[in-house]
Design a protein around this nucleic acid. Structure first.
Length: 154
DNA sequence: GCCAACGTTGGC
DNA sequence: GCCAACGTTGGC
């Protein structure tokens, strides 16, 4: 099993939206970056766990945990001209963008803020903390996962 | 709202 | 293939 971090802007789709979704499950749409696409298409597997990270929030931080329940398949929003994520270059016969389905595991009782992550020993190498990092789907190591889970205040 | 960092586009 | 211009991300 592997661990990941998924970024979202809460104004667009928050962990509370995920909590309200049918079966607390959604497809993770709108990723339009090739490196992130490759992770979604090839590497996220059923049972993998994903931190949900709120970017452009005050403060930004990790707000919960979700599980991959369906592996990569073409992003339907790329085919829909009315969608803000429409991409005329992505065709059903030759899709460019992919999604996975995720199901909410738990919302954390308190957000783990970006500042707290920065101050925590052992997380210095996290992709999220790299200056200028914009990757919206990123791998998390076993060790990083354990450290962050230990920061959850239950 | 600002702006640094980054990815993509397109002229050459 | 280079690289300037442009658009986007995302912290602050």
């Amino acid at each position: 099993m592997k661990y990941w971090l998924l970024k979202t802007e809460p104004e667009t789709f928050s962990i509370d939206d995920l909590a309200r979704a049918k079966q607390q499950t959604t497809f993770w749409d709108g990723v339009r970056n090739y490196q992130a696409r490759n992770f979604l298409r090839d590497q996220l597997k059923r049972g993998d766990l994903c931190f949900i990270y709120h970017s452009n929030d005050e403060p930004p931080g990790i707000v919960g945990l979700a599980e991959v329940v369906r592996e990569g398949y073409p992003d339907p929003t790329a085919f829909d001209p009315r969608s803000p994520y429409y991409d005329e270059h992505s065709k059903p016969g030759n899709p460019r963008w992919y999604v996975v389905d995720i199901k909410l595991k738990r919302k954390f009782p308190a957000k783990i803020t970006l500042d707290e992550l920065r101050e925590t020993k052992g997380l210095q190498g996290m992709e999220l903390l790299r200056k200028g990092s914009r990757l919206s789907v990123q791998p998390v190591t076993n060790r990083q996962f354990a450290i962050i889970m230990a920061m959850v205040k239950d």
